[in-house]
Amino acid sequence: MSWLVEHRWPRWAGVVLMLLLILCVVGGFLAAAIPPLITQRQQLIDNAPTYLQHAQAHNSFIGRLNNRFHFIDKLRAAVAAPPSVSVDGILVAGKAVFSALTDTLIVLVLTAYLLADMPRIRTLAYRMVPHTRRPRVILIGDEILAKVGVYVLGNLIISVIAGGLTFAWLMAFSVPYALLLSLMVALFDLIPVAGSTIAGVIVAAVTLTVSVPLCVDTIAYFIIYRLLEDYYLIPRIIGRAVKVPALLTIVAVLVGGALLGVIGALVAIPVAAAVLLIIREILIPRLDEA
């Protein structure tokens, strides 16, 4: 929005463009996801007898696991059990769907209002500060907002890198639905700490349909990438952009995730950057004068 306004776009046009971009990304993901899911469902139904035969073969890896844990017997028992559909279950499912749709709509509306009214909101917030201290607060506040924006941009860049590398890996081994899985990895990677791990588990499960060695190699790939992202990409791209030391970047993400879960991990680095800025601009000068 700042870039568009600087290039003489009307603010309302920038808001519309941002919302259209968000809708295009979500719609593109659904367009890439729904047809393969429908196709995969039909293929699973058609190939179920073959899968069942391979799972019962005693000389295969999956067959040996079945002999030990009795997966097939448990699956047959679950399928044979009569479905229990209750009014309470329907109400709970409907409530979950309605809640998800409502939350999505609220996020879009709040995004639109914040994009449109951010200058007025910022001005009102600064007017709550005494006049003598207002210039210093405006300087620090604007720099904090700039660091938050840079952090979001850096996080998007890292997610694009994660999706691109995953797409190259899956295409190299002819894994089905490489584009869909890569988009999923990019979206999940926006969540620090846990996002890439969850995506890696899902991708590894899909590669298991190709071969067991490929599944093991994929797990190793995601472990190596996770270390590369945590200890190289995040400190280099995000930590350098928001001017937070690499060690503090990692510690902030770990502490934020431990305290507040996903939300804490998401806001950990901007909060650390804001705290460092306040310490550097306010606390350290006062200590030097003391």
Rank of each mutant, 00 (worst) to 15 (best):
Ala13Ile: 07
Met18Trp: 15
Leu254Gly: 01
Ala205Gly: 06
Leu181Thr: 02
Ala57Lys: 11
Glu143Cys: 06
Ile238Gln: 01
Val201Arg: 01
Asp189Thr: 06
Leu19Lys: 06
Ile250Leu: 15
Val109Trp: 10
Glu281Gln: 15
Asn47Lys: 12
Ile284Asp: 06
Lys74Gly: 09
Leu247Ala: 14
Ala112His: 04
His54Gln: 14
Ile237His: 03
Arg286Cys: 10
Asn67Tyr: 07
Val210Leu: 02
Ser211Asp: 12
Ala146Lys: 15
Ala273Tyr: 04
Gly154Asn: 01
Phe167Asp: 01
Tyr221Lys: 03
Glu281Trp: 07
Ser60Phe: 05
Leu145Phe: 14
Gly94Asn: 12
Leu37Met: 14
Thr39Phe: 11
Ala268Ile: 04
Phe167Met: 13
Gly94Val: 06
Leu259Glu: 03
Val16His: 01
Phe71Asp: 07
His58Glu: 14
Ala258Glu: 11
Ala116Gln: 12
Arg120Ala: 15
His131Ile: 14
Ala205Trp: 02
Lys74Ile: 12
Thr50Ser: 12
Ile45Ala: 14
Gly200Trp: 04
Arg136Tyr: 08
Ile284Arg: 13
Val275Thr: 11
Lys74Trp: 11
Ala48Gly: 04
Ile157Cys: 06
Ala178Tyr: 05
Ile278Gly: 02
Leu283Pro: 03
Met18Gly: 08
Val15Tyr: 03
Ile278Ala: 13
Ala186Gly: 08
Gln56Cys: 03
Asp46Leu: 08
His58Ser: 12
Lys74Val: 13
Val244Thr: 09
Leu75Val: 10
Gly257Asp: 07
Leu105Gly: 04
Lys95Phe: 12
Ser174Ile: 05
Lys147Asp: 11
Gln42Thr: 07
Arg120Ile: 09
Glu229Pro: 01
Ile34Trp: 07
Phe188Pro: 00
Thr102Ile: 10
Arg280Ser: 10
Ser159Asp: 04
Arg11Phe: 05
Val129Cys: 04
Gly256Asp: 06
Val271Ala: 11
Arg64Gln: 15
Ile282Thr: 07
Tyr51Gln: 13
Ser86Leu: 05
Pro130Trp: 02
Leu276Tyr: 14
Phe69Arg: 05
Val109Cys: 10
Ala13Glu: 08
Ala186Trp: 02
Ala93Thr: 14
Ile284Val: 13
Gly141Asp: 00
Ile38Pro: 00
Val152Ala: 14
Val26Thr: 14
Val193Pro: 02
Met1Thr: 15
Phe173Pro: 02
Leu30Lys: 02
Ile278Phe: 09
Arg240Asn: 13
Leu101Asn: 09
Gly149Pro: 03
Leu170Asp: 04
Val271Trp: 05
Lys243Gln: 13
Leu75Trp: 15
Tyr51Ile: 09
Leu37His: 07
Met184His: 02
Leu115Tyr: 09
Ile250Cys: 03
Thr111Glu: 07
Phe29Thr: 06
Thr39Tyr: 13
Val15Pro: 00
Trp12Asn: 09
Trp9Thr: 08
